[in-house]
Amino acid sequence: MSAVIDSNPAQPRWQTITGLVLSGLIVAFLVFDGAIKLVPIAPVTETLTALGYAANPMLARSLGIITLACALLYAIPRTSVLGAILLTGLLGGAIATHLRVGSPVFSHLLFGVYLGLMAWGGLYLRYATVRRMIPFKL
């Protein structure tokens, strides 16, 4: 199984490092985002209300657990593709929520797209298997 997700030893070092940096940034953001939802601090419940959800601490904690689970799966090399798939679903829900409430496009609505591109971009740069699954033909 490890041969499926191993990085290509022949690929340039910059590509592997760039992929690791992108993936590390995603994991750091998700851990922070999940942790503040576990507490949950006042800005979290206020944001839930602004997005049309109940200011329920259990809802915030549930979202925090889901976010941390996605981060953990994404951070482990053997489960990183599964983590990216689940993260894509989570981000899709965030995008739909921001679309529903009319959030600003580039700063809020597309933020989930930016994170998704970074997450998949990190895997794309690191793993030849992902590049074969998502080939870009020029």
Rank of each mutant, 00 (worst) to 15 (best):
V31A: 00
S23Y: 01
Q11P: 05
S23F: 02
W14S: 14
L30C: 11
G34E: 12
W14Y: 14
I36E: 08
L20K: 05
A10Y: 09
P40A: 09
A10I: 01
Q15S: 10
P40F: 14
L30N: 02
V27P: 04
G24L: 02
A10D: 14
D33K: 00
Q11H: 07
G34S: 13
I36R: 15
A10G: 06
G24N: 13
G19W: 03
L48V: 04
L30R: 05
P43H: 13
Q15T: 08
R13F: 04
E46S: 15
P43D: 06
L38T: 10
A35G: 10
L30E: 06
F32D: 01
V39H: 09
I26R: 00
A10S: 12
T18Y: 01
L38G: 04
W14H: 10
V44N: 05
L25M: 12
T47W: 13
L48S: 14
T16F: 15
P40Q: 09
E46P: 14
V21E: 07
I26L: 10
V27Q: 02
Q11A: 15
P40I: 14
P40T: 12
G34C: 09
A10F: 13
A35Q: 05
T47M: 13
L25C: 07
Q11L: 06
D33W: 03
T47R: 06
L48G: 12
Q11T: 02
I41E: 13
L25E: 03
V39N: 13
G24S: 00
F32K: 11
T47H: 14
P40L: 06
T16S: 11
L48D: 10
A35T: 14
K37N: 08
L48P: 09
V39S: 10
P40M: 09
T47Q: 15
S23E: 08
I36L: 15
L22M: 01
P43T: 12
L48F: 12
A10H: 14
Q15M: 12
V27F: 04
V44Y: 11
V44P: 09
I36A: 03
K37L: 04
I41D: 07
V31C: 04
P12I: 12
T47A: 15
Q11F: 03
L22Q: 04
T47G: 11
L48W: 12
G34Q: 11
I41M: 14
W14C: 04
L30I: 13
I26T: 06
